[in-house]
Amino acid sequence: MAASKAIMRGPTIIKAEDDKTRQLNKNTLMAFSGEAGDTVQFAEFVQANVQLYSMRNDTELNPAAVANFVRGELARSLRSRSPYTVNLLLGGIDPTTQTPHLYWIDYLASLASVPYAAHGYAQYYCLSLLDKHHNPNIDLEQGMKLLGMCTDELKRRLPIDYKGVLVKIITKDGVKEVDFDNDKIVRSA
């Protein structure tokens, strides 16, 4: 079974080719947004710890375990002197059941398992599209098409140029970057 969870990213104005994702282990990928500096710092911190777990135990944590670990670290940070301001999307394939999982985590460390999610302004433009067109049995091809509808909508409605998106897909074989047509021109009505 092919998993179909695309994770998107919108870069900053300073850099047009930024990768706002980190691969945590063979089958989990985390996308992040939020306070500059906090994001990469926190993402690479959990990435290091999840990879350490894999090396020590010669086994991969499943996405649910990774999500709860990440949430725990973010929740701990929330009540510390200087909390991380990071919003996360965490997608992955459970290596034992081969089922896809997507988790939505905000900077308050609220954790929710969801069929589709977004952070930032993208939420307001994309969630209604996803509400309408997503179904539980959606495959990768349809998923990519739906992602295209989302980016089209962002281009149509967002007043800023977010320099396109970088798309990675997670399947049972791992994480890979895929080509995505960012040059398509979408005009506002």
Partner: peptide, 8 residues
């Protein structure tokens, strides 16, 4: 209440 605290 606050979802993060519901989890915690």
């Amino acid at each position: 209440g606050l979802a993060t605290d519901v989890n915690t």
